[in-house]
Computed example of a mutant assay.
Amino acid sequence: MGKNVKTTKKSNEKYMKIVDAAAKVFREKGYKEATLEDIANAVGMLKGSLYYYIDKKEDLLYSVVERPLNEMTENLRKIIQTNDSPTLKLEKALINHINGFERYQSELFVWISIEWFKAEFGGRIATLGDEIDHMFRQIISEGIEKNEFRRDLDPKLITFAIFGVFNYMQRWYSPNHGYTLQEISVQFNKFVLQGIMSKVLL
Rank of each mutant, 00 (worst) to 15 (best):
E107P: 10
E37I: 03
K17M: 12
T73Y: 02
I112E: 13
E37Q: 05
E120N: 00
E107F: 07
K92Y: 05
L46W: 03
S141G: 01
E107R: 11
I80V: 15
S141K: 06
D84N: 14
E74F: 04
E74S: 02
L88E: 15
N99C: 03
L128F: 13
K10C: 13
N83E: 13
F117D: 11
K89N: 11
E91Q: 08
L60W: 03
G123Q: 15
A34P: 02
F121L: 09
I144Y: 08
I18H: 07
D84Y: 12
M135P: 14
G122P: 10
T35A: 04
L61H: 09
A42C: 01
Y53S: 11
F121Y: 10
S106Y: 08
G122T: 12
W111M: 14
S49C: 05
T35C: 03
R67C: 03
I18E: 04
K17V: 09
N147I: 03
K118T: 05
N70T: 00
Y31L: 12
I79K: 14
I18M: 10
P155F: 00
A22N: 14
K24Y: 03
W111S: 12
I139R: 04
E142V: 06
Y51R: 09
K92E: 09
G48C: 01
E71R: 04
A34F: 00
D154G: 06
Q138G: 08
P68W: 08
E33S: 13
G122S: 13
K17P: 03
D152E: 09
I79V: 15
E142K: 09
W116V: 03
E107D: 09
S141L: 01
K57A: 09
K24T: 09
S49T: 08
R103K: 09
E115F: 05
E107A: 07
E115M: 07
R137E: 04
G129R: 03
G143H: 00
K92N: 14
K29I: 08
K47H: 08
F149T: 00
T127I: 14
G30N: 07
M16C: 07
D133W: 09
L76S: 11
A119G: 00
R77F: 01
I158C: 00
D133V: 04
L128N: 14
K24G: 05
D84S: 14
W116K: 12
W116P: 14
A40Y: 06
D20F: 04
S49G: 09
N75C: 12
G123Y: 15
K92V: 14
M16S: 08
R77P: 01
K92T: 15
I144M: 06
K10Q: 12
